[in-house]
Simulated assay, not measured.
Amino acid sequence: MKIDLTGKIAVVTGSTIGIGHAIALGLAGCGATVVVNGRKQEAVDKAIAAIAQAVPGADLKGVAADLGTPEGADAMVAAIPAPDILVNNVGIFNPQDFFDVPDEEWTRFFEVNVMSGVRLSRAYAQGMAARGWGRIVFISSESGINTPVEMVHYGFTKTAQLAVSSGLAKRMSGTGVTVNAVLPGPTLSEGVAEMLKEEVAKTGQTLEEAGAAFVKAHRPSSIIQRAATVEEVANMVVYVCSKEASATTGAALRVDGGVVSTII
């Protein structure tokens, strides 16, 4: 199967590093015009340069905007009014005990992880429907199913994304616009690398070894017994954004290495 997204415009939020960057790179490699997003222009420019080097001739645009705010969402819509693909990837996480998380932190997580996708989907979905084709993807997490005791405030936002994705898919019934959620498990993104930095320094393990040890200790149900790469997650997202995925909608697609123990 050859995925060809030539002529499609794809907005990937939070795509300067990590899973989002890998998704942007994958979509660019399939011919899409890719809009890279981050909060700071310097980071956006750096990410665009990296993708351009990896995919010569890629058509790339950049929008520096904080999508955890209504103003940031408005700036994105003003800059890119009619994309064909929207990947709601931007997100934050931070291990913190439930009893230490103040109200404002719950609100911040909700605004960034949930409302960023709500606002952009609301702005873009009807235009996609009018054109008869579109793809909206929410990057949720296995934490949306297995709420992590060390990040309850994060897990609740990932569950909320599943609800929004499922409901919006039904709302877009018959329009040619698909809406799906992709659920990564532990993934060796820059954020996870930072979290494991102390363990790597202390033990002398490689990042991959430390990631595998973390999975075995904290996600023992994992079937692959290691952390995924950002490319492995991006591969699923690129497929869901493709023309070939036209019958996949309203789905919660796991790339969790089998962490969630369920037969469906």
Rank of each mutant, 00 (worst) to 15 (best):
A75W: 04
V255W: 04
V255Q: 01
A32L: 10
T229R: 05
T203N: 11
M195I: 08
Y124E: 00
A82Q: 13
A193D: 08
I223Y: 09
P186V: 15
G72S: 10
A82D: 15
R171K: 11
F99M: 12
P102F: 10
A251D: 05
Q126F: 08
S261Q: 15
V63R: 03
Q161K: 05
V101G: 00
D256H: 10
P70C: 09
F93S: 07
E194C: 02
N37L: 15
T13W: 13
G127M: 10
S165L: 12
K61V: 10
E71T: 10
E208M: 06
L120A: 01
A125F: 08
G7C: 06
K216S: 13
C241W: 01
I17Q: 12
P70R: 06
R219C: 10
K46I: 05
I92Y: 01
I9K: 01
S189N: 08
V230D: 12
A79N: 02
V34W: 07
M128Y: 02
S242D: 05
A213E: 13
F98M: 10
S121C: 11
T33N: 08
T206M: 09
A52K: 03
A123E: 12
M115I: 12
L5I: 04
E231M: 00
F99P: 00
V101T: 11
V215N: 00
D256Q: 06
S222V: 08
G167F: 04
Q161D: 07
P148G: 11
Q41L: 14
D4I: 05
K158A: 02
R254D: 03
A251T: 11
I3E: 03
Q53D: 15
S222Y: 05
L120S: 03
L196A: 02
C30Y: 03
T6M: 03
I136E: 03
S121A: 15
G91W: 09
P148H: 06
S173W: 11
G72L: 10
A210G: 02
G7M: 05
N94Q: 14
A213P: 07
N37F: 12
A52D: 15
K243I: 01
C241P: 04
R254Y: 07
E150V: 13
L188E: 01
Q225R: 13
I23Y: 06
S141V: 11
L253E: 05
E209P: 09
N37I: 14
